[in-house]
Amino acid sequence: MSTVNASPQTFNVVVQQVSGTQSSKLGSSFNAGSIAPVTGTALASPGEMLTVDIKVTNSRGGANTVTATVTDPSGSNGFLGQGSLSWDDGDDGAAWIEFTGFPRQADQVTETGECEYSLTTSGDDVSVTVFTI
């Protein structure tokens, strides 16, 4: 059984475990490994508040921890969200983490429409799908 924990370093973003996504998009799928973090940009749908749902599948059953981080691409450090998804040795399967509640941009009017994300893993490669709303 996997566990999801929010980092105490998180600010101006809500980080939580969810059981799926409300996104109607296909998502962006890739593998992440321990050699280097995987990074990308998540974009909100026009007229929607940004929500980032990440599904991580640990299929090999080895002990593993995946750290997911979202950051402010504007350079103003307006938010940071970080959480970890962990599996004990012998555990496999999928876990979901969600980032939501992003603050408005510096003008206090415009909704945050994008964030940078990165994923690192401590063990075997994992399958990842990133969904946005």
Rank of each mutant, 00 (worst) to 15 (best):
F11W: 09
P46Y: 03
V14P: 00
G40E: 06
V15N: 14
L26T: 03
G27A: 08
D53I: 07
E114P: 00
T39Q: 12
S84R: 08
L26S: 06
G78S: 14
S74Q: 14
P8Y: 00
G90I: 04
D88A: 11
F30S: 11
G93Q: 11
S19Q: 13
D92L: 06
G40K: 06
S29I: 03
D72C: 04
A36G: 00
G61P: 10
M49G: 00
T69F: 07
S23L: 07
E111S: 11
S19R: 12
A68W: 09
V18A: 11
S19M: 08
E48A: 13
P8V: 00
I35V: 12
D89Q: 08
G33L: 07
S34D: 06
V52R: 02
S45T: 09
R104C: 14
I35C: 07
P46K: 05
Q9I: 11
N12P: 02
G75E: 15
A68E: 08
N12D: 10
V126M: 05
L43A: 06
T41V: 14
I35F: 10
V66S: 09
D125Q: 12
E98N: 12
S118G: 10
S118H: 11
A95R: 15
G27T: 09
V15T: 15
V14I: 08
D72M: 09
G47R: 01
G40N: 06
I35S: 13
S74K: 13
V128R: 06
S23H: 08
T121C: 11
V128Q: 09
S122D: 05
A44S: 07
I54A: 13
D92T: 05
W96C: 02
V15G: 13
L85Y: 06
V70E: 09
Q108S: 06
N64S: 09
D91Y: 04
S45L: 12
S28I: 13
S122W: 05
Y117E: 01
E98I: 06
V56H: 02
P8C: 00
V52H: 02
T71C: 02
Q9G: 05
F102S: 12
N31C: 06
L50Y: 04
W96Q: 02
T39S: 14
V13L: 00
P8W: 00
E111V: 12
L50W: 04
A95I: 15
D53W: 13
V109T: 13
